[in-house]
Write a protein that binds this DNA or RNA. Structure first.
Length: 873
RNA sequence: GUGGGUGUAGCUCAGUUGGUUAGAGCGCUUGCUUGACAUGCAAGAGGUCGUUGGUUCAAAUCCAUUCAUCCACACCA
């Protein structure tokens, strides 16, 4: 044997070491075998803002399981890793860090800032990659990408220019979401809503002809400075006469028109709405229908502009107070109501969004959304679980144009250039274009692109697009995307339309959606709550395998999962169990035993029983993995290894393992090693480290379990008869143990066993099992038992008698037998009523009907034996 | 307001196409220093599968209803 296992399972002894070996040997790279089908995954790039959290751990565990599985199945497998520059999030972090040094962005300028940002990326980007390696992620690091690297820039420019030329990118004035703290626009998807208690102020606006006033209500009185009209519904009888008249804007004195627009709902409030086109998306629409001027009343940091000297410099909330006070003093304020309404806040910093009219770059979404909707509708792109299709379709069908310009420095700079001389605008991939008309150098747009603009290209930009690379032709479209449901709208939807538009192909076939990781109380893990668990701490304490196992177990697609250390402990205990089973095997086998072949001609029943179940396990695990039922697959492996292999098989063969030199001994060794080795392979995608460490110590062919062949079902290894026979034996042993425990018989007290059975062939040569596992001192298999004062243990195929007069309590025994009789009769009744039902007989499948018939004979036999036992008492 | 999820043992959750007596881990009870493992072994208690109705030979599973709870999207000034 080349090496031994340490007595104690200590994952840190070998996890890092194995990882470096795999990496050095190049196992993470595609096999390059073009005769084999390709399998590819592109990793959702973690943000470089900080470090890996439990969500990443889950995401990458799932991807690694799929990747390792497919690799072992022979696919030409590629998993591309990378990180995301996360423009707004990272920029905010850097600004924050600079604040501590007393610096602002303006102090150090664009170049200086970008230098810092790249430095940040060097440190944090590298750290994230280290963490991914700790998890055991088998990605091809030689293909590592960054959303802001040269290749991605190339792709971004290409896309921007193409879309611009197609008329799908335009620059225009629209209402955008402005964050007064981050000082940038954000897209609709980046706005979160929060219910806040506010007020509803009712204000009167006097008619300019002195004939009265209109009454209207607002939640944001400070925006009245920017009112350029008042609107009513054209069908509102109350106001028909004043349409076309003018009102005088209180505090400002400006005359503004009364317009009519369907947008106004007659039943809400007073039926009159103030129109502030520069600060409200609906008002903007009304404004453009009626050619109303845009009156922007706020600065970038949400203070009132100098155009309104009385309020100039006040921030929006100060101004609100001052304006309410002034309205009240001027007799314009009629009443104030409490009012709860939802307020948009910035998803990064939580600051209340200020909608404002602004000149920005947009992507025209409708033509792009159409094919993307179709691709999901017709099943070309499949969501797992299916229900997330609805989220996606709902978003795509109601999509609005995408505001892509950001007033940030950290990101892809917009490839648009302006000529200060003649006002010419061009969009180009060139670095320093010159104006064709004036011949002077042009000025590049200072803005950068929404971080998701580059993320949207990730599945193909990482494979070399826009160049037509070999990777593109082999690995694109990718096989599956694994991500959380929280970014379906942000990211998944944008990749789908981008892929279809630019490459003409979908970016991936399947989208495997997972849920969020929550704390033990079901709360979201977050920095502010301080309830997050650091995956690295868990790995240090329990090992990466235990962490991965925990994340894979009991996790069904799309559902959230609570995380707590007790679960990881259970996983670690499982690893420990496996470790010790392996140690046991190693101390009982000889050098010449094969893990790759098994001679079925010399196997005993228990060997066949195990092999047969293992064979079935192979089929099931493969099926589950193919259907992305990772949690089900892993729990089957757990059950097989612990409850079948360790609890039963190892115990069953212990005696044989001491009989060195016999055929039966060799057969047991062979079975142990063969099944263990294969099971390790089945488990390897889930627990890569421990399976490799153990596999290396067992007899094996090949250099690594990682690149070994995933087991396949072998028809000759099915032994239904042996399975049934051993089931009978195991049931009998359990029944005996059960009875002894019930009667408080100490384990040290051995008893003689008489077994009367209708299936003697099953009990043939099985006496030893009862001696060691059922507290028997001697086993007699006989058809006639004439004993008084015995305990009877009744199973469907045997009656077991234990003479134990001195222990048995007759009354207790009678009670127990009566209970057993009731159970049997209940079951008989159930089965009989089914069989009495003509519909059941005629409509249920034959298999099901037969099962019921078998039940009848089984419980009839039990009932009769119990009755007899009762009589004998 | 629209859409969706979840509800199964004390706790956290599985449960594949509807098909034996509904499972696991943790916790609990009892007994074990069993030559792989006390990070363990054996035995056990604990569930009217949220409610009500329907479909079906058969429902935790499908349909409808209702309650509870969570989420997403949309919001009327």
């Amino acid at each position: 044997m080349q090496k031994q296992l340490n007595k104690k399972y200590n994952p840190s002894d070998f996890e890092d070491k194995l990882y470096s070996e795999w990496e050095e040997k190049g196992y993470f790279k595609p096999s390059g075998d073009k005769s084999k089908p390709a399998f590819s995954i592109v990793m959702p790039p973690p943000n470089i803002t900080g470090q890996l959290h439990m969500g990443h751990a889950l995401d990458n565990t799932l991807q690694d399981i799929l990747t390792r599985y497919k690799r072992m199945c022979g696919f030409n497998t590629l998993w591309v890793p990378g990180t995301d520059h996360a423009s707004i999030a990272t920029e905010a972090k850097i600004v924050e860090a600079m604040k501590k040094e007393g610096l602002t962005k303006d102090d150090i300028g664009r170049e200086g800032f970008l230098q810092r940002a790249w430095e940040w990326n060097r440190v944090y980007g590298a750290r994230i990659i280290e963490q991914l390696k700790k998890m055991g992620s088998s990605c091809d690091w030689s293909r590592t990408r960054f959303t802001l690297d040269e290749g991605c820039s190339e792709a971004v420019k290409e896309v921007f220019v193409r879309l611009y030329e197609k008329g799908l990118i335009y620059r225009g004035i629209r209402i955008i979401n402005w964050c007064p703290h981050c000082l940038t626009t954000i897209s609709d998807a980046e706005v979160e809503y929060e219910d806040q208690n506010g007020h509803f102020w009712h204000i009167r606006y006097p008619l300019s002809d002195g004939s009265g006033y209109v009454l209207l209500a607002t939640t944001r009185p400070e925006t009245m400075l920017g009112d350029t009209a008042v609107a009513v519904n054209p069908n509102d009888e109350r106001y028909k006469s004043i349409i076309g008249k003018k009102v005088i804007l209180p505090l400002v004195g400006r005359e503004i028109p009364i317009v009519s627009d369907e947008y106004v709902e007659m039943d809400f409030g007073t039926g009159v709405v103030k129109i502030t086109p520069a600060h409200d998306p609906n008002d903007f629409e009304v404004g453009s229908r009626h050619n109303l001027p845009l009156e922007n009343v706020m600065t970038d940091d949400a203070r009132i502009t100098d155009a309104y000297p009385k309020y100039a410099g006040m921030d929006r909330y100060e101004a609100r107070k001052a304006i309410v006070r002034d309205l009240e003093e001027g007799g314009f304020l009629v009443k104030t109501e409490e009012h709860e309404h939802s307020v948009g806040i910035c998803y990064r910093c939580g600051t209340t969004i200020e909608p404002r009219a602004s000149k920005q770059w947009f992507v025209k979404m409708e033509p792009l959304a159409k094919p993307a909707i179709e691709a999901v509708r017709n099943g070309d792109v499949r969501f797992i679980p299916e229900r997330f299709e609805k989220n996606y379709l709902h978003w795509m069908e109601n999509i609005r144009d995408w505001c892509i310009s950001r007033q940030l420095w950290w990101g892809h700079r917009i490839p648009a250039f302006y000529c200060d001389g003649c006002g010419e605008v061009i969009v180009t991939k060139e670095e320093n274009p010159v104006c064709k008309k004036c011949g002077v150098p042009m000025r590049q747009d200072p803005d950068t692109l929404d971080t998701w603009f580059s993320s949207a290209l990730w599945p193909f930009s990482t494979l070399g697009w826009p160049k037509s690379t070999e990777d593109m032709s082999i690995f694109y479209p990718t096989s599956v995307l694994v991500t959380g449901y929280d970014i379906i709208t942000f990211w998944v939807s944008r990749m789908i339309f981008s892929g279809l538009e630019y490459t003409g192909k979908k970016p991936f076939s399947d989208v495997l959606i997972h849920g969020l990781i929550r704390d033990s109380q079901g709360r979201k893990m977050s920095k502010s709550l301080g309830n997050g668990t650091d995956p690295l701490e868990i790995i240090e304490k329990y090992g990466a395998d235990a962490l991965r196992f925990t994340l894979a177990t009991g996790n069904s697609p799309g559902n959230d999962m609570r995380f707590f250390n007790e679960r990881v402990e259970a996983s670690r205990n499982f690893a420990n169990k496996l470790w010790n089973a392996a140690r046991f095997i190693l101390m009982n086998i000889e050098n010449d035993v094969s893990a790759d072949e098994i001679d079925i001609s010399v196997l005993e029943d228990e060997d066949k029983w195990l092999l047969s179940q293992y064979n079935c396990l192979i089929t099931e695990v493969r099926e589950n993995l193919d259907k992305y039922e990772l949690g089900i697959a892993v729990s089957k492996l757990y059950d097989f290894i612990w409850s079948i292999f360790c609890d039963w098989y190892i115990e069953l063969v212990k005696t044989r393992l001491n009989e060195k030199g016999s055929v039966s001994n060799k057969a047991a060794q062979n079975t142990l090693v063969y099944v263990m080795s294969g099971t390790l392979k089945l488990l390897h995608p889930f627990m890569p480290f421990i399976t490799e460490e153990i596999w290396q110590t067992l007899p094996h062919k090949g250099d690594s379990i990682m690149i070994s062949e995933f087991p396949v079902n072998i028809k000759e290894h099915d032994f239904p008869l042996a399975e049934e026979g051993m089931r009978v034996i195991i049931d009998s042993i359990r029944a005996i143990r059960n009875r002894r425990a019930e009667m408080n018989v100490p384990p040290s007290r051995k008893a003689k066993l008489y077994i009367k059975t209708t299936k003697p062939e099953y009990f043939n040569k099985k006496e030893g099992f009862f001696l060691r596992l059922a507290g028997a001192s001697q086993v007699v298999i006989t058809n006639s038992v004439n004993l008084d004062n015995t305990v009877r243990i009744i199973t469907d195929s045997a009656e077991i008698f234990i003479p134990m007069n001195d222990i048995v309590d007759n009354e207790a025994e009678r009670e127990r037998l009566t209970k057993e009789l009731e159970t049997a009769e209940k079951e008989l009744e159930r089965a009989q009523s089914k069989l009495d039902n003509a519909d059941f007989i005629s409509r249920a499948p034959e298999k099901v009907v037969n099962a019921e018939k078998e039940k009848i004979s089984k419980y009839t036999s039990i009932r009769d034996k119990v009755l007899e036992a009762l009589k004998k008492l």
